[in-house]
Amino acid sequence: MKILKKTHSTFYALGLLAGIVFSLSISGCGKKDKGTADLKKGLHVVDGKYLADDCGNKVLLRGINMGNIYAARFGQNELEEIAQTGANSVRLVLTREYQDWSNGGAMTALSGSALEGMISSCISKGMIPILELHDFTGTGNVLTDLPKAVAWWTKPEISTLLFRYQKSIILNIANEPDNGTAHASSYKTANVIAVKGLRDAGYTCPIMVDAPDWGKNHVFFLENGNSMMDADPLRNLIFSVHAYWPVNGAFGNYPDSWLNTTMNNLANSGLPIVIGELARADIQNNIAYQINYSLLMSRCQTQGIGYLVWWWGFYENPGANNQLSMTNDGLFSGLHGAGKAMAVTDANSIQKTAVKACRL
């Protein structure tokens, strides 16, 4: 979601890309600890088409985005509440550093132990942890910033931990790493290189790639998804589209006819597509432009496409809540309006359609 956009210093793209690829190739970072070579064990993409679990069952992601990095105790209380929806997955919002209010607000590196706490909590509740790095949201240069994301995922403290959970996790390289300025060829190149870097480092788990243009450009996957899948030596990718498509928006209108056509095209692509962010509205210039989320949920259900609602809400950090928070107190009992509909009451809500994965 673009409301958490951050800015970052810029480096020369080719130099960084070369450096990442070279350093990975000579270091073999974590290869000795990487997960099983049998990709049919644990979560895996079948024939480049759909996500399956350890028992070979198709998994339709039905989950919620949670801003763990902004929550007290990294969202442990909120994860307990999310589990009451019956969600089978949680997309965990992470940053390389966070403001540690227990230490006067000092910027502090996210540790492997903190990350493990979030992962183990999700798994214990039957929810697939989808780990996403939020630092490069809305970047103007995907070629320089995705290598930084790869560098963080392949840090020994992080990679050694995640290799132990490869059967149970999905790794989302970076959240919305394009502000709409990237050329399709550059965006594809940056992601193909990033996937290669992660594979060379030892990651065998499914890797999730966000669409360009703040995650909204679904056409990119229709045109490039198959070749990107072929470029992954494990053919183990998931393609995430963020459905900020308001009925009447300040920057575009998306009527029901357009939504129906788009969902048909995504389903007919044969690719493992997920609506990685599904919200009740798109916030443009601080105005909420409504999205027909109920129609999107219905089409996801009938066409076998996963969805993850943006986003839960905060219990001990209520100041982090905003217009799209499903609950303003971080509690299941605090679900309201569209948030309650998406989680519980809609005919195609999480609670009514989620099926847990086998043996996380």
Rank of each mutant, 00 (worst) to 15 (best):
K2E: 12
A13T: 12
L14V: 15
I20F: 09
S23M: 10
G30L: 05
T36L: 14
L39Q: 06
D47G: 08
L51W: 08
D53T: 01
K58P: 14
L61S: 07
N65A: 05
M66A: 02
L79K: 05
Q84C: 00
A87R: 12
N88P: 02
V90A: 06
L92D: 01
V93C: 02
L94Y: 01
T95I: 08
S102Q: 10
N103A: 15
E116T: 06
I119F: 08
I123V: 12
E132A: 11
H134C: 02
V150D: 14
V150C: 13
A151L: 14
W152D: 05
T154D: 10
S159T: 09
T160G: 00
L162I: 02
R164T: 11
K167A: 07
N175M: 09
A182W: 01
H183L: 10
S185V: 15
K188L: 14
V192C: 02
A194K: 01
D210V: 10
L237T: 07
I238V: 13
H242Q: 15
G249L: 02
Y254E: 03
T261Y: 07
V274E: 03
G276D: 03
A288L: 12
Y289W: 04
L295M: 09
M297V: 02
S298R: 11
R299D: 11
R299K: 13
Q303A: 14
V309Q: 13
N328W: 08
G334E: 04
A341L: 14
M342S: 13
D346G: 12
Q351P: 02
K352V: 15
T353R: 09
